[in-house]
Design a protein around this nucleic acid. Structure first.
Lengths: 135, 135
DNA sequence: AATTTGTTGTTGCAAATTGCAAGAACAAAT
DNA sequence: ATTTGTTCTTGCAATTTGCAACAACAAATT
């Protein structure tokens, strides 16, 4: 890790994922079942390949994701969440809820409606599901 | 607002506060009762003055904070949260909880321990309190 | 065997942002 | 008249980002 700015847990967290891209990669893994570099590259926000490599490296170094050779294709890597990564779920869900609430142009889809209805249940269920895939 | 990268609510949120500083300013207002430019400047993370001006401007433009002349000192400004700003509380609390959980050097203090014990209650109580100060 | 395709990167470079230091504008206090 | 406090600006170097092209290498195809 780089040097941290303070001992405040919020500041320490933002030192790790306080940027415009890291949580989108986490979102892709958590909510969209994306697992590979090429899948992350094709997300609608169009992350640049050098940024993607950099962020995946940081997330791996922080033990938020794990990089492994794909069982299905040995010339491919798959990224999975660690428990530390899964524990980002409440943050992601809260950010999603806030964004949907205050952006007319971000219509709630299935998950968004579930969140509005019962956020706690969504977090509980999803974290349960993700826990079964944890690395 | 600048052009957004996609219609994903997470992406839209990160377009607004996805950086290393914005949520620390929000933290200062929400959890440390800081209200003025000079108070934000003296926080331990040492934000640069030009960045602070820029972020306050963005937060104000996004209607997350409101800038008013201080009642106590007419040559001073005070920043307060709008309801949209108060609604960032769950995000801030979750980030704080995650940061404390995964950083040995971020010891939980009073609030951190309350969060660990009953996060929901903390969010409920604090948002109730903040609501009374909303602008 | 040679070629194509898919996947994960790297590299070079311009643009934008950040970090740091100094100071300016202006009102209140002394 | 001077000092102090507060907010904000400016200049400049360092860093990060965004974009485009290309490289390495294995699997699949011909």
């Amino acid at each position: 890790m780089d040097k941290k700015r303070s001992d405040c847990p919020i500041s320490c967290s933002l030192d790790v994922f306080g940027d415009k891209w890291s949580l989108l990669i986490i979102r892709d893994i958590m909510l969209r079942s994306k697992v590979s570099y090429s899948e992350f590259l094709t997300s609608e926000e169009r992350i640049a390949s050098n940024i993607l490599v950099n962020r995946l490296g940081v997330l791996e170094a922080e033990n938020i994701v794990v990089k492994e050779i794909s069982p299905a294709n040995k010339s491919k890597f798959v990224y999975s969440l660690t428990q530390k990564g899964v524990d980002l779920l409440p943050i992601v869900i809260e950010i999603m809820d806030w964004g949907a609430k205050y952006n007319a142009n971000c219509p709630r889809k299935e998950l968004g409606k579930k969140i509005k209805k019962d956020k706690t249940a969504v977090i509980k269920d999803l974290s349960q599901l993700l826990k079964t895939k944890v690395r």
